[in-house]
């Protein structure tokens, strides 16, 4: 049985996050990506395979080269994931601001 792959698994590894940053703005072929890492080309290739299975990376064959690019929509899932939680805290802290403001006014008044 194949384990479930999702976006969070795709970025669970620091090397994979480094790959995301590398190819975020321009697609790169596997060799060019591998040059940025100390690990073997095979190890980089495995990371890319996992990220591709998670839907974060698309691999396109161009002649003899395989180009890897980011799927922006998948990347958006991560930011969307944290954002509502952040807003909940922002709401709480906004109320803290109000209380602090009242306390400061009381103290000075």
């Amino acid at each position: 049985m194949e384990s479930r792959r999702d976006i969070f698994q795709a970025i669970a590894d620091p090397s994979r996050r480094e790959i995301v940053r590398l190819i975020a703005f321009q697609p790169m072929n596997l060799n060019a990506i591998a040059e940025n890492f100390d690990m073997s080309r095979q190890a980089v290739s495995l990371h890319i395979k996992i990220m591709s299975e998670c839907g974060l990376i698309t691999i396109k064959q161009q002649g003899r080269e395989r180009f890897c690019s980011i799927e922006p929509k998948k990347l958006a899932e991560i930011a969307d994931w944290i954002e509502p939680y952040r807003r909940t805290w922002e709401g709480r802290f906004g109320r803290v601001d109000d209380i602090l403001h009242k306390l400061k006014t009381k103290k000075n008044g």
Partner: peptide, 30 residues
């Protein structure tokens, strides 16, 4: 991850933003 997901308030989430904005956030988040 369960705690973060439960913190979602009413699910009002902006639609996808530009990739560079996202990447900034991603870098801050990760």
């Amino acid at each position: 991850d369960g705690m973060v997901k439960s913190g979602m308030e009413k699910g009002i989430v902006d639609s996808h933003e530009k990739l560079d904005v996202l990447l900034n956030k991603l870098t801050h988040t990760l």
